[in-house]
Design a protein around this nucleic acid. Sequence first.
DNA 1: AAATTGCTCAACCGCACGCTA
DNA 2: CTAGCGTGCGGTTGAGCAATT
Length: 308
Amino acid sequence: MEVEGRECNSAIQSEEETMELRRGPWTVEEDMTLMNFIAKHGEGRWNSLARCAGLKRTGKSCRLRWLNYLRPDVRRGNITPEEQLLILELHCRWGNRWSKIAQHLPGRTDNEIKNYWRTRVQKHAKQLQCDVNSKQFKDTMRYLWIPRLVERIQATSTPTATGSSPTTSTTTYHHHPNNISMSSGQLVPPPPPPATSIGGDYGGVQPENSSTGASSDSFGTQVSPVSDLTDYYNYPVNNNHNQDYYQVNQVSYPDSLTSPSGYFNHGLDFQAMEQNNNQWFDAGGDTSDNLWNVEDIWFLQQQLNNNI
DNA sequence: AAATTGCTCAACCGCACGCTA
DNA sequence: CTAGCGTGCGGTTGAGCAATT
C-alpha cells in the first residue's frame, strides 16, 4: 500500500511534534478526516499518515480506529451461530490467536472476537467453575456446545439456500459511520447521530433484525440470543445423544477425547443457570436470516480440515 | 427515583517482530 | 551488527449503558 505525499514538510512536522496527542473516543470530525485521507492516499505508514492528515493522534490509534471501526468491510451486527461455531472451533485449535481467528471471519475484527470470547465464553467457563483453558471446558465446547450449534444451524437452514458459502452467503453488513457515499473521491459525512449514541458521538446503528429480541449495544453489535452458549445449558446432558450426533454428522474429533460424562458433577445447577441467563432463553425464535445451509457447514468443515 | 451492580466494547498499553539504513 | 522505526498482536482498562435492588 502506498501513501502518496508521504512526508509532510518540515515546518508542519515540527509544529505537530509539539502538539499534544488526543486520546479517548474519536469524534466525528476525526473519523471524517481519517477516512477522507485514507480514501485519497490509502492506508499504511500510520505515523506519517496521522501527521499528514492533521490528526492529533498516534499512528497506532489511527490504525486501530480504521481497522476496527471505519474500514468499509467491517462487519457489525449479530455474531451469527456460524461465526460462533467458527470461533469455538478455531479457538480450540489456536487458542487466543485472535487475529488468526479473525482472518476466517470476514469482516470481523480480532478485537470483536476477543471481546466476544471474554464477555461470553469466559463467563460461562466461570459459571462452569472451570478454567477456560482447561480440558474440561474445551471438551464441553467440543461435545456439547459445538454440536448444539451445528444442530441449530442445520435446523434453521433453508433447503433452497444452496450454493452459498461462508464468504458468499447472504450476510448482512450493518451500517456504521463509514457506510458513506463517495462522490468524486470525497467522503460524505454520515447522517446525524441518534441522541442516544455513546458519548454524544454517532454510532447508534440499528440492527436489521431488531425484532428478534437479540440484545444489542448502541453500535448494533449483537449476539444471537438463541445461539449463545448459555443456551446449551438447556441442552439435555446426554452422552449418547452427543455421540450419536457425531456419528450421524461425521464430525470428527480426536477419539482420545473423553466424553463429557462427569463434567457436570461440580454442583452445577443448570436450572439455576437458565434462570440466571434467561435473557437468552427468552429469545425464542431468532434464526438469523443469513444462516448457512448444511452444505455450507460442510464446506466450512472441509475448509478447516484442509487449511489448518 | 436513586443507588448499586454488572455487562459490553472501544480504545489504550506494552511487547515482539520485521525491515531498513 | 545494531539502532530506529513501523506495524501487529494480545491483554487490559474504563466509560457508558442496562438491569437490578
